[in-house]
Amino acid sequence: MEKKEYLNLVKKISPKANIKKTFLCSFFIGGLICAFGEALRQFFLYFRFEEEDAGAMVSFVLIIITAILTGFGIFRKIANIAGAGTFVPITGFANAVVSPALEFKTEGFILGVAAKMFVIAGPVIVYGIFASIVYGAIFYFVKLIGG
């Protein structure tokens, strides 16, 4: 059998993700997390937090909840059902930081926990910050010329 033919066969035989289920779960659980975030936001706004600080507090609370659930081994189980429903919200970022930190405890707190902490979440920070710098630079020079 030719390699190309075989790869087609692999595609045919391998079971596909059950998209009805995964699409629904990601939408539903992702939506619930966001709705919970909104409830928190309204709560902080009610207690006279600034708009910006209320947003930061929402992230803060969601990160703490995720960290605890990760520690107890519960987050993984929810995420296995939710897929993108948990990794797209900030919960995914928090889990991506906490899980390697916990995992590499056996290699010590410096070279294990600390060094491995951003092994999964790092790219998001790197490209997020880089994109913001690019945008900032464009914004700065446009303003310079224009204004």
Binding site: S14, P15, K16, A17, N18, T22, T70, G71, G73, F75, R76, I78, A79, N80, A82, G83, T86, F87, G92, N95, A96, V98, S99, P100, L102, E103, F104, I120
Partner: peptide
Amino acid sequence: ERQFRFPLEYGGQRKRT
């Protein structure tokens, strides 16, 4: 798992294959 894939508590979905 920790050598070849992700940390154990990382929330990923396992594929059916």
